[in-house]
Design a protein around this nucleic acid. Sequence first.
DNA 1: TATAATATGCATTATTCATGTATCTTTGAT
DNA 2: ATCAAAGATACATGAATAATGCATATTATA
Lengths: 147, 147
Amino acid sequence: MQLKKYTDYGLRILMYLGAKDGAEAHERLTTIKDICETFSLSSNHVNKVVHHLGRLQLIETRRGKNGGFFLAKAPNEIRLDYVIRQLEGDEPWIECHNPYCVALPACELKGIVARGKELFYDYLREFTLADLLKKRGQLQQIFSTAS
Amino acid sequence: MQLKKYTDYGLRILMYLGAKDGAEAHERLTTIKDICETFSLSSNHVNKVVHHLGRLQLIETRRGKNGGFFLAKAPNEIRLDYVIRQLEGDEPWIECHNPYCVALPACELKGIVARGKELFYDYLREFTLADLLKKRGQLQQIFSTAS
DNA sequence: TATAATATGCATTATTCATGTATCTTTGAT
DNA sequence: ATCAAAGATACATGAATAATGCATATTATA
Ligand code: SF4
Ligand code: SF4
C-alpha cells in the first residue's frame, strides 16, 4: 500500500516547473535532463512520466533542439487528486474478481473500502500544485543547488 | 495502490468466523482447511494469515487434533481500521528517503498524503466486523454451499 | 502412539514496478 | 542541407515484493 515512485516523480516534476520563474515560455523551458540531474533519477523513467503529463495536458512539451516542457496551466488549476489518480491509475483498492470471491454477493467490505478511497481523493481534491509551492523560495534554492 | 490479498484474506477469515453460529467454542471451531475450501485459497497463505490474526488476538487458535480457531472478541469489537492497518502494514504511502529526495525539506506533499491516509483509516474506524455481517444469513448460505 | 491440527522457516514462482537500450521523429541552429 | 538536441516510442531487462509451495516442528487429543 504505497504510491508508485512514478506518481511521485510526476509531482516532483510539477513542483520543479512550478517553482521556476520567468515570464517568457522559453525562459521556463525545462528538459528531462534538468529533472534527472536535480533529483538523481533515471532519464528513461522521467521520460515516460513527462510524456504522461503531456498527454494529460498538465504540461506542454516541445520536441527538437532547445525543446523541453513547461506548465500548461496555472499551479492553482492543477488539482492533486487529478494528478495522482491519473498517474497512479484509478483501480479499486480491493480486487474481488480475479479470482472471483464467493463472498462478493453479500460482501459489505468492498463498498466500505471504495468509499474510504474516495474520501482520500476528496481530501486531495482540496489541494493544488500551488499548495505545494508554499515554500517556493526554498524549493528554488534547493533545485538550483542540487543538479 | 491496492490492498494486499493477504489483508483481504484476513478479513474473509474474520467474516467466515463471524458468520458462524453455535454457542459452544468447539461448535465454532474452524480449520484452515475449511477456509481454503470455501474460498479456494492456498493453505500455506491462509496458514500465515491465521497465525497473524492469532498474534493480534483477534482469533484464538487451538493446535492439535480437533483444533482450529474462533473469534476471540465480539464482532463489534473488531475495528476494520485496526485489522487492515495491522495486516497491511502501516508504512507511509510515499517513500521520501530510500533514496533521499532533495525536495524533502521544503515539501508539502508528503504531509498532505499522510493526512489523506489518516482520513482513510479514520473512515474505516467507523466500522467493525459486525458491519460486515449485515447479510449474515446470505453469507452463511454462501459459505455452507461453497466448499 | 498415531493422527490431526497449527507453527515456523525456507524456497520458489509470479507480478508489478523500475530501469535500461535502441531507435524514431521533430525542431532549431549552423 | 545537414547536424545535433530534444522528446516519443517500443521493447528488453532487472529488482522488489507479493503470492504460493514444501518440509518439518510442535502441540493436543483420541
Ligand atoms: S471479501 Fe469482499 S472485498 Fe474481499 S474479495 Fe471478497 S467480495 Fe471483495
Ligand atoms: S517530493 Fe515530497 S513527497 Fe515526494 S519524495 Fe520528495 S519529499 Fe517525499
